[in-house]
């Protein structure tokens, strides 16, 4: 099945023409069909991504009560055996020397219809890319890679962490079956080797940079400065999350979505 078909199957619906109020959606979805079964899998990361999710105070209770079933997740569900899931949110990169992590990821791919790299560690490796091992309690744990290096990933939400808003927007898009909105997340599943230097090689070197400053604004570690109208990277601060390039208006351009959001 194609990713699109799988997402539609996950939603149990075709794309709806009009976006409706979230609360109405909640009731409707709850009535209409079984709630999607979502698993949360924590590999090598700081838990910041799910913390960011939980900052959506206004929709969180409804989301968890009426919209979805969290069927698996350390600290969230009292369950040892991984069940079948419609969607698995994977936070954290995977450590090649950690057989448990590798095994868990493989199992996720088997048990989940859709695998989402949730946050930059899972999507690009992010700061775990800098690991060189040699630390207690497991000095042999040194190789951390994005989950897409080991399994097929259907969509990615980069960010260190992803903002509460992008998580909420993604959830709402899933509920509404808004595939147009989700398309960039599907495309970003392939963006696994990220670095602040992408701005130089993929934007400035390609005669695309216009010096708007969006990259430097978006950088979550203040690794970017603007000098003479071009981004200047302090690589000591870069965590390789990929957000600067993802936010750049010259990397990809969601014109239709923007016009829709502006009411044009």
């Amino acid at each position: 099945m194609s990713i699109l078909a799988r997402i539609k199957a996950f939603l149990g619906m075709e794309a709806k023409p009009e976006k409706e109020a979230l609360e109405e959606e909640v009731e409707k979805v709850a009535e209409e069909k079984a709630k999607p079964r979502i698993g949360y899998i924590h590999l090598s990361g700081c838990t910041g991504d799910v913390m960011s999710l939980s900052e959506n105070y206004d929709i969180l209770a409804e989301l968890l009560t009426n919209l979805v079933d969290i069927v698996y997740g350390q600290t969230l569900v009292d369950l040892w055996e991984m069940p079948e899931m419609d969607l698995a949110l994977v936070e954290g990169s995977v450590c090649l020397q950690d057989e448990h992590s590798v095994k868990e990821l493989m199992e996720v791919r088997e048990k989940a219809a859709l695998v989402c790299a949730f946050g930059s560690c899972a999507a690009t490796g992010c700061f775990t890319r800098y690991s060189r091992g040699g630390q207690q309690a497991r000095p042999d744990h040194e190789s951390f890679v994005p989950i897409a290096d080991l399994v097929k990933v259907d969509c990615a939400i980069p960010g260190c962490p992803p903002s509460p808003e992008i998580i909420a927007k993604t959830v709402v898009a899933l509920i509404n079956g808004d595939m147009d909105y989700l398309q960039p997340m599907l495309d970003l599943a392939g963006y696994t080797e990220a670095c602040g230097c992408d701005l130089q090689t993929k934007v400035v070197n390609q005669a695309l940079c216009i010096g708007c400053g969006t990259c430097a604004m978006a950088c979550q570690t203040r690794a970017l400065d603007m000098n003479a109208g071009r981004p200047e990277l302090n690589s000591d601060r870069c965590v390789k999350c990929g957000v600067c390039y993802v936010q750049c208006p010259r990397s990809w351009w969601p014109a239709e979505q923007i016009n829709k959001d502006l009411g044009f």
């Binding site: 808003e165 604004m217 979550q220 936010q247 351009w253 979505q257 923007i258």
Partner: peptide, 24 residues
């Protein structure tokens, strides 16, 4: 903002991947 800067701003508002509590 000039047009390209607005493109950065509007893209950030529609897709605030790593930009927290600024879009609105």
């Amino acid at each position: 903002a000039i047009p390209c800067q607005l493109m950065g701003i509007r893209k950030m508002q529609s897709y605030p991947f790593g930009v927290r509590f600024l879009a609105d």
